[in-house]
Simulated assay, not measured.
Amino acid sequence: MSVPEREPLRLMAVHAHPDDESSKGAAATARYAAEGVEVLVVTCTGGERGDILNPSFEVPEGHEFETIEGRRAVRRLEMAKAAEALGVRQQWLGFVDSGLPEGDPLPPLPEGCFALVPLEEAAEPLVRAVREFRPHVITTYDPSGGYPHPDHIKCHDVSFEAFAAAGDPDRYPGTGEPWEPLKLYYNHGFSMNRIRAVHEAVEGAGLESPFGDWVESRDAREIPERPVTTLVPVADWFPNRDAALTAHASQIDPAGFFFAVPRDLEVDVWPWDEYELAESRVPLPERAPGEYEADLFEGVRSEVPA
């Protein structure tokens, strides 16, 4: 008799804007996709208020970048290329970028933007997506958003709400059959442990570190460090991550910050994507301090039926 095939594992990565999926946990999503996990990136907004951050960027022929609609169209082109580089599916929730307010006092957020949408209204399409895709694991941002962008904070809020509510048949009626994800993670793009390790290695190699000022400024502001519970080995998928980053040509400078560390040095010093386990509905082994998970699906693989 043939061995029955196991139900495929499914991972949902929820992000605020197009390009976030390429700078936070990108190599891990590429790894899992390559290993046969079904991976869906959910993007809350269209990135319509993102500025041009790449001095070499040229607006694609037939497009413009001066209006909300024009920027949305360009960012969709970039997102499609990034998803292809990572080997993942991608879905838009359809909300409008809130922008990053600057000034003292801060200006009000734009009317109708994602950050101002009431929680249940903003979470409903994500609950629908969870019930349709049926992920075993969801990744998103911690309650701070990782940094104080209103869309990142709102992305956490709607992700946490969807994780809690998608399995409850009494909540969000009309959005599909209930589905209860098993684990929720917060992705950590730049923990201080990673920054210090890479910073010291770069300087030890006689090179100028891109993290020098950052180490000092983060320490000076006493930014709290959240716990890292999970280190997923992903060095073999750094090329996919880098290709996804450069696909976002309006946002990512190929000569800029994300590419300032030599890749061979990064492979030697920090070959992981970092996560914080926020909730688990499956039993997990206890770990001593300094011990980490190496797999987002730890405890899940044995729960998924054949």
Rank of each mutant, 00 (worst) to 15 (best):
V96L: 12
Y185D: 07
A34K: 01
A255L: 14
L77Q: 08
G146C: 10
G256F: 09
P173Y: 08
V41R: 05
F190W: 13
E208D: 14
S144P: 00
A243W: 04
F57S: 00
A197P: 02
E121L: 14
E293Q: 09
P4A: 11
G299R: 06
W270E: 04
E111A: 12
A85S: 14
F297R: 05
P239F: 00
E200K: 07
S217H: 07
H149I: 02
R71W: 01
P262I: 13
A13W: 02
L93H: 03
D219N: 10
G70Y: 03
V127L: 11
A260I: 08
D97N: 10
K24S: 14
A85L: 10
Y275T: 02
E203D: 07
E111D: 14
P178W: 07
A13F: 08
R263M: 15
L77S: 09
L277Q: 04
E102N: 09
L126Y: 03
E303D: 06
E216W: 04
C113V: 06
L265M: 11
S98K: 04
D242C: 07
A83H: 05
F57D: 00
G206N: 06
G212D: 15
E84T: 13
P125N: 07
V282C: 10
D157V: 05
I138M: 15
F211H: 13
E121M: 11
I153Q: 11
Y172H: 12
P210T: 05
L100H: 08
E132F: 09
Y32R: 00
G204F: 05
A162H: 08
E64S: 07
S280R: 05
E64G: 07
L86T: 02
W214T: 15
P143T: 09
V117I: 15
P101M: 03
T139L: 10
P305T: 09
V198L: 15
T43W: 02
A164P: 00
A80E: 15
A260V: 09
R76V: 09
L9F: 10
V130N: 03
G167W: 03
T246F: 13
H149E: 01
R49Q: 13
W92M: 14
E102V: 15
Q90Y: 13
A27N: 00
D236Y: 04
D19H: 09
S2L: 14
E276V: 01
E69L: 06
G87R: 01
E216F: 04
D295N: 12
P285C: 02
V158R: 03
D104H: 09
R75Q: 10
V198Q: 14
A220M: 13
R194H: 11
P271S: 06
G299C: 13
E38G: 10
G94A: 10
F297D: 04
G50Q: 00
W272C: 11
R263E: 15
A164T: 10
G174W: 02
R194W: 04
L119I: 12
A197F: 06
V300W: 05
L109Y: 01
E58G: 03
P173V: 12
